[in-house]
Design a binder for these strands. Structure first.
Ligand SMILES: [Zn+2]
Ligand SMILES: [Zn+2]
Ligand SMILES: [Zn+2]
Ligand SMILES: [Zn+2]
Lengths: 171, 171
DNA sequence: GACCTAAATGTTATAACATAACATTTGTTC
DNA sequence: GAACAAATGTTATGTTATAACATTTAGGTC
């Protein structure tokens, strides 16, 4: 009972409760600093997003949220998502129409998303050199960037290693 | 009458009919080489996409297509788009749920899309150095990429220059 | 506490984007 | 021209997202 990991997510490879705790603590701290309200709904939605490292769809969140608040509507979720994104606590995964908790809310925010087709997990990285080259390229093009989205679909390291062990797995 | 530029698009900065002619000729040639059918529908849809350098939505294409073929349905358009994307003649702009004609169908295909918020035009670039650094990063992460999407939203060079001349313009 | 205001949430409806499933037609091969 | 695959037609529905307006809540002023 000491460490109640979430039923939907039982990773063998890391302590996910730690991820959740970090994310929520950071969110609370940042919102307090900024004088914005991390209301009950917003907090709950953020917690639901962090149930796993998979990108989650808005309507999937709605389904997860209804047991908590049965009157919830799509608007409820989208408004919470809008807030969380504005605060940089959540990213939208454009190529999936889905959302993912941000691991680096309190610092850098130009990220690379690695999206695994097999396990659906999304890894966020801040690839300094790529971003430097990208800045050069944009300068050359005379383009002033407001937002950047780099999304790579493929197979993550863990899934590749599993595929070696179980080669007859379907794609 | 010699050069009938399209009514919806009258660029002062380049000969767009040339863009259209190139794109269609390349498409015809590639499809012939590959033994796939660039049918009337597919050809017409590709032509409609190339009406401008703006990303176009599927239902907008449907509206443009109905005068040509009044029985067209969403499926008609989405099937044509699926084919054109499979052949690399069109890209999906993930962050807009929209589509854009590809300028480099016959060679490289890992592109960077620069999407202007003001004029809505999309510029496609193949930024070698960025992609090289990205490959390093992916190798380091142990990630095997299947598809890559780099989409930057901001203000293009031409719009920036106009903004200098007309500084009171709204965002 | 009464009052005001802005922010957040509730509620209803609908817009916008995309696919499933199955029937029919067209093109190709033998 | 029979057989098969590819393309298209047709109907219906699934999925994602927002608009518009009413009500409630939180915080500041008197
Ligand atoms: Zn975790
Ligand atoms: Zn994986
Ligand atoms: Zn052009
Ligand atoms: Zn522009």
């Amino acid at each position: 009972m000491a460490k109640p990991t979430h039923p939907q997510h039982s990773p063998t490879h890391h302590d996910h409760q730690q991820c959740v705790d970090n994310a929520l603590a950071t969110a609370e701290q940042l919102c307090a600093q900024r004088g914005v309200q991390l209301t009950a709904i917003r907090h709950q939605v953020l917690e639901l997003i962090w149930q796993s490292h998979k990108a989650v769809k808005a309507y999937e969140l709605l389904d997860r949220f209804k047991p908590i608040n049965s009157t919830a509507k799509p608007t409820t979720i989208y408004r919470a998502l809008d807030f969380l994104m504005a605060q940089g606590l959540v990213h939208r995964v454009e190529s999936l129409n889905a959302f993912i908790g941000c691991r680096c809310s309190n610092h850098n925010h130009e990220q690379l998303l690695l999206i695994c087709k097999r396990c659906q997990e999304v890894e966020e990285r801040t690839p300094e050199k790529v971003l430097t080259e990208l800045s050069y390229e944009l300068t050359q093009a005379g383009f002033t960037a407001h937002s950047k989205s780099i999304e790579i679909h493929g197979i993550c390291r863990r899934c590749s290693e599993q595929a070696v062990l179980l080669p007859s797995q379907p794609n």
